[in-house]
């Protein structure tokens, strides 16, 4: 993985070094990532939210029943706005959705399909963190609500699965992304920025309540 200065936020530059991620990721790549790393993701990712998770968890389709190769990829919690034209589909807006809603399902999906990155917002809990440690997977936290900015980092819509059955937001979209920004907030070493912040804010809350 190469490091480069993050630029391209208009006139503002955050001055952070970003790791460039080229998909698919190997287990070794993933163990080189740590909580706090700023990354730019390139390659093929898939989207999925509530319905796809429920489906993968209960129906357990085999790898050959899924039209896309999920191995080594990033599973993005996102229900995009998509426009259809003669030349195909175009992503209009594609920010993350709240990941915690699929906490029940994610651990088994990571281990069954060889996914190396979960991407979304808000972070996830213990069961997912354990599965990440066991299987070699990280959580990429992207920027909630930055849907136009993130849509501009989708180069093209490659394919879609379950569109008829689940509808546009809930279908699985295969997207090619370029310089898609995120921050690692849960890593394959069992660390989570989210549990750190829960703990610290919990102490601050106690102080304020006892005031």
């Amino acid at each position: 993985m190469v490091e480069k200065q993050v630029t391209g936020f208009g006139s503002q530059v955050s001055g952070k070094k970003a790791k460039i991620i080229n998909l698919p990721l190997s287990k070794k790549d993933v163990t080189g990532l740590n909580v706090g790393d700023v990354v730019l993701i390139n390659g093929m990712i898939v989207t999925g939210r509530d319905k796809i998770h429920k489906f993968l968890f209960y129906e357990r389709p085999s790898k050959k029943d899924i039209p896309f190769n999920l191995s080594g990829t990033v599973f993005y919690h996102c229900g995009p706005i998509v426009k259809k034209s003669d030349s195909g589909y175009k992503i209009i807006a594609s920010g993350p959705t709240t990941s915690i809603r699929v906490e029940t399902y994610e651990h088994r999906i990571i281990s069954s399909y060889g996914i190396r990155g979960i991407m979304g917002k808000g972070g996830m809990c213990e069961r997912t963190l354990d599965a990440m440690k066991k299987n070699g997977c990280v959580y990429f936290h992207t920027i909630g609500g930055a849907a136009a900015y993130l849509a501009d980092r989708v180069k093209r819509v490659v394919d879609v699965w379950k569109l008829e059955e689940f509808g546009v937001p809930e279908a699985m979209w295969l997207l090619e992304v370029e310089n898609f920004p995120a921050i690692v907030t849960m890593d394959a070493h069992g660390r989570s920025l989210h549990s750190d912040i829960v703990e610290k804010s919990g102490l601050a809350l106690k102080k304020l309540i006892n005031k």
Partner: peptide, 30 residues
């Protein structure tokens, strides 16, 4: 400067500008 918080807000502000200029929704969850 250089914090994750600032990084996030810079992207948010840039997103607001792009959405307004291209008349696209700010967030995909309308």
């Amino acid at each position: 400067k250089g914090s994750n918080a600032r990084h996030a807000l810079e992207i948010i502000l840039e997103n607001i500008r792009i959405a307004r200029e291209t008349a696209r929704p700010i967030c995909q969850d309308t």
